[in-house]
Nucleic acid binder design. Sequence first.
DNA 1: ATAGGTATTATTTTCGAAAATAGACCGTGG
DNA 2: CCACGGTCTATTTTCGAAAATAATACCTAT
Lengths: 250, 250
Amino acid sequence: MLSHGKAANTTSIEGKPMTAPAVRSRKEFGKTLAVDITHRLRQDIVACRLKPGEPLKFDALRLAFGASFTTLREALTSLTADGLVIAEEQRGFRVAPVTTEDLFDVTNTRVLIEIELLKRSIENGGDDWEIAVMSTLHRLGRIEERLSGNHVEDPEWKIAHRQFHEALVSGGASPTLLGIRASLFERAERYRNLSSMFRPQSRDKVGEHRAIMQAAIARDTDLAISLIDRHIRSTSDNVVKYASHLLTQP
Amino acid sequence: MLSHGKAANTTSIEGKPMTAPAVRSRKEFGKTLAVDITHRLRQDIVACRLKPGEPLKFDALRLAFGASFTTLREALTSLTADGLVIAEEQRGFRVAPVTTEDLFDVTNTRVLIEIELLKRSIENGGDDWEIAVMSTLHRLGRIEERLSGNHVEDPEWKIAHRQFHEALVSGGASPTLLGIRASLFERAERYRNLSSMFRPQSRDKVGEHRAIMQAAIARDTDLAISLIDRHIRSTSDNVVKYASHLLTQP
DNA sequence: ATAGGTATTATTTTCGAAAATAGACCGTGG
DNA sequence: CCACGGTCTATTTTCGAAAATAATACCTAT
């Protein structure tokens, strides 16, 4: 089902001289266990280590994450709001299924939101925005050079990729829109991960990203919009092309 | 602080012959207590019976809702995702504060989303959509006739009003977008409720709604869009005008 | 055989006690 | 007087047991 060994936890050793090895808290992400488990569960779902549609039974989760009913319940409730988990009252939770319908829905919504945020960024983005866009793209390029071929599966590439897209829209500061965007990005990433397992060769993302960056920095709104639109949709088309057999058809 | 009597709990009377009048379950909204409490809490927050910024302490909530820590925690976690509750790790929950920044953010996002959905509805809406739009407007009109003057505070009017706006966008079937819209609508409604307590006279909503309906049914996309845009923004302007003293300035 | 009910088991949901943490209070030493 | 440190209190967070509910297996009467 999944991984997560109980993982020896040597986080946060406090400043005292020679105090015990301090097993203290496996909390990597948040202060409370619940938000920590939320993040870990989210990662497992996005990475498809937990398969779409799979039932999330408490006994199994309790074993895998070493937390109690209540804590897990809270984590699952959070993820339900993100659309990564489905809750059926009185009948437990399961990983949200992947469907072509949902993929298109997510993609269309993403296009709408990303375009709006990109517009605002181009309009209002200052020096720091430009720098963020350029530097995140640069890092992405470096990683791609190093990892010739299939970067898409590399965790470092994924982070850099996410950060570039985040930087791109960071100029238009709307907490609400940015929150929605982040959630949609993850839902989409799950589909990307699904197809990356079957995709033969990755297309020229380097060039695509560079073109988007240039249009944005040049404040060419129309061009930037049309590029990002194509970029997002082509990614989603790729999923349909290479992973359609994994999508449960309605 | 708030209402919600302890409400004697005569749940689950099993099917025996002549057992008591069966008060059966205070669960009005969902099957599980947690989702039920989520809804009740949501209503209390939207209606401002729970004041913006107010800390949500477990002891008090437990008394008011007659549920345990865990159940309340789950409810609060849900509401956090809706932007109605703020969670500060290790320091509990509190009702999301109201600020002009947030109001503008919500309003702008709403305009974006509602316009998109309205576009799609006008493009794809069939007979059932037209009928839904017209009949919900009709009901709204009737209620306004009956309640001359300040309808905005009337719960029946609120429901009819929400249903009209829901019908208007129900043609563009995107679960994701509709979910976002619903959440934003409630966040906005909280602000509306805030200002309605101080607004001297309600402006001509009847006419506004009718005009939107007519433009939509006539499939005049541009007109409908500009009307809904103005409608949403003017509502928000009203809040600033009459309730600005309640908004915590940054 | 089979529909319909009934006991059994599996699983989720809810609870209140116990642990962990933050916040307030208070005295002490600079 | 103020800063620092430690104790006590208020509050949140986590746990595992207990209750409620759904799923399954089994039995009986038609």
